[in-house]
């Protein structure tokens, strides 16, 4: 949609152009602030006129997001944002439509819409703020909370097994799947920029800290002293190397990933070289690399180019109209068997 001519005509936009006049009402210290900041910085760089952004959210702390963005916004009902956004995108494919959701909103009450949006490959950018807890209802376990989690609704520990959002998205054959972290501003902006350019559903899991009800849920991955040993950054065409001084890598062994020390006995040539265009099975294997055995992958797991749902719908309307001619009320009413009474 952004030809170079359009970009030149558009006034240069800045972050402030995307800041609404509403007072932000998240808890001080919430990870959501960092995400809001990154989105407000990325949007002006995309070459899309401001009026063409529509942000749709569900219910929960994260879903207040549209109120703080000076774009078209729709704060809807619990879990339904992907369904509402599907209607927006199909009705007007020219819009850049973003869905803001949380782990409860997307994976619990809205689980059905979440997977079916991905199955269809609707051109929505879905940002899932995963803090592994229900925040707005004040601290119940969520579908991403770890087993055994003690919360207000699980005083003796949760017996539920959690979803892995990346695995779930890949299982639903999402065509763009990525993970980033609230405090990694640079990384998040790179991922968001890629998501914005993707045709079809782009899913980004953002590990987000809820400092009130689940503080430091991701600290073991993101805290500085250990961070390099606890995460591996996925980069297209590059081997999976991580760790302090890049001394560890991921190698495939008997169809499964394994951690190897790059101490001279293993060469870099043996490591997995990341390719986000591989079949989903590869990305799924990456998504199953779980702590503490494995480093947590950050970055783009999968990005493939294929037809979007809204293009399919609108192409069909166009081709049928070309074939049959544009219908009029006259032709509509007079179709089928008619007879005249005189």
């Amino acid at each position: 949609m952004s030809t170079s001519a359009q970009v030149q005509q558009m006034p240069t936009m800045k972050k402030k152009d995307f800041v609404s006049d509403q007072e932000v009402r998240w808890c001080p210290g919430c990870g959501d602030y960092a995400i809001l900041n990154a989105v407000q910085q990325v949007f002006p760089t995309l070459g899309i006129p401001r009026e063409k952004f529509a942000i749709v959210s569900g219910i929960g702390c994260s879903s207040r997001f549209p109120y703080y963005m000076n774009t078209y916004g729709f704060h809807s009902i619990h879990g339904r944002a992907p369904a509402i956004a599907t209607g927006v995108k199909v009705a007007n494919p020219d819009l850049s439509v973003w869905v803001i959701t949380g782990d409860g909103d997307a994976l619990s009450i809205g689980g059905n819409h979440f997977i079916h949006t991905m199955r269809r490959n609707v051109g929505l950018k879905i940002l899932l703020f995963n803090n592994k807890i229900y925040g707005l209802t004040k601290g119940q376990y969520s579908p991403t909370s770890e087993k055994g989690k003690k919360t207000k609704s699980t005083p003796f520990g949760s017996v539920d097994r959690p979803f892995n959002p990346i695995s779930l998205a890949l299982g639903a054959e999402c065509t763009f799947v990525a993970r980033t972290v609230d405090i990694y501003q640079k990384h998040m902006k790179e991922v968001l920029t890629r998501a914005a350019a993707h045709k079809g559903t782009a899913f980004v899991e953002i590990l987000q800290n809820c400092n009130i009800f689940n503080d430091r849920a991701f600290a073991d991955i993101t805290d500085k002293p250990n961070r390099d040993d606890k995460q591996v950054v996925l980069e297209q065409g590059k081997p999976l190397i991580y760790g302090k001084e890049h001394r560890r890598g991921i190698r495939m062994s008997k169809y499964l990933p394994e951690v190897v020390d790059l101490d001279g006995s293993v060469s870099e040539d043996e490591l997995v070289v990341h390719d986000e265009t591989r079949p989903a099975a590869y990305a799924f294997l990456l998504s199953r690399m779980l702590a503490p055995e494995f480093p947590t992958p950050i970055g783009i797991f999968r990005a493939i180019d294929t037809d979007s749902y809204e293009d399919g719908v609108n192409d069909q309307v166009r081709s049928v109209t070309e074939k049959l001619g544009e219908g009029t009320i006259e032709s509509l009413l007079n179709a089928g068997d008619t007879w005249t009474v005189t």
Partner: peptide
């Protein structure tokens, strides 16, 4: 069957998605 009458039909994953998509389309001007 009325695609040439500027009609888009969306067979949704459930009843809720059906109405929600219609609300989204209305927000977008349909």
């Amino acid at each position: 069957g009325y695609k040439n009458y500027n009609v888009e039909t969306f067979q949704a994953e459930d009843e809720i998605a059906g109405v929600c998509a219609a609300i989204g389309a209305a927000f977008a001007g349909s």
